[in-house]
């Protein structure tokens, strides 16, 4: 599903963001990507979306060889996966329905398909009743759910969430995480980059910890911090 082989990334200004990363995700997995700001987890997400190119190594996503892909192919890679960001990235002058439908319009989907898929995606995130509202009329959690519906409307095999709860209060964060987990149960592979410690610890999923551009831990049913190091766990 996702594979990184000996991937390194050095930015033009000399910053080494990732160093010799090897990572493999299988279909249907749920993975937390954790680490402090500047650890390289955002860079890793950018490599998966081909927003940045790896300096060394190979990246495979959804069967695409991301490393050798041309500019023209990038949109098709991005259509094959859903992405959710910390700042939601909704179009302010489009309604909830239009925002979700837009992800299908750009793929030149049939209007019939759009009319079928969009309400389904909205129902999945529980926003059917707010379809005609504009983003500014919604709470942060609701906006993120719209973003989720948009990410899912094309039925991607992989969902990437970059700090999806970064702008949300703890309770709303939980709702979003539950939704992500539910999406995962339906068969979608999910990658969540976060530093929401309490959620990571409670969900008991695979945890990949990055620090200073290196994977320091890859653990099934892991916690935010490695308990062997005796760091206090605060709830």
């Amino acid at each position: 599903m996702v594979e990184l082989r000996n991937v390194s990334k050095t930015y033009a200004n000399g910053t080494v963001a990732l160093r010799d990363i090897n990572l493999r995700l299988d279909k249907g997995e749920f993975v937390f990507l954790v680490g402090p700001s500047g650890s390289g987890k955002s860079t890793l997400v950018k490599l998966l979306l081909k927003e940045e190119d790896a300096t060394e190594g190979e990246v495979y996503v959804n069967g695409y060889d991301v490393t050798s892909m041309t500019r023209q192919e990038i949109p098709y890679l991005r259509r094959s996966l859903g992405v959710v960001f910390q700042d939601f990235r909704l179009l302010p002058n489009k309604t909830v329905y239009e925002n979700v439908a837009f992800a299908m319009i750009i793929t030149e989907a049939l209007p019939k398909e759009i009319r079928r898929q969009v309400p389904m995606a909205l129902a999945l995130v529980g926003l059917s009743r707010k379809a005609n509202m504009y983003p500014h009329q919604l709470s942060g959690g609701e906006q993120q759910r719209v973003a989720l519906a948009r990410a899912l409307v094309n039925n991607p095999a992989l969902l990437i969430a970059d700090e999806p709860t970064g702008n949300l209060d703890p309770e709303t964060s939980w709702e979003i995480m539950k939704l992500l987990s539910e999406i995962n149960h339906r068969g979608t592979t999910v990658i969540v980059a976060t530093h929401e410690k309490s959620i990571v610890d409670a969900m008991k999923k695979r945890v990949v910890a990055i620090s200073k551009g290196v994977i320091v831990r890859d653990q099934e049913k892991g916690l935010y911090r490695d308990e062997d190091k005796n760091t206090p766990v605060l709830y």
């Binding site: 023209q72 991005r78 179009l91």
Partner: peptide, 13 residues
């Protein structure tokens, strides 16, 4: 902003 969002969700150039 709209253009960058379109790029993220896979709009072609």
């Amino acid at each position: 902003r709209e253009i960058s969002i379109m790029k993220y969700i896979g709009a072609t150039d």
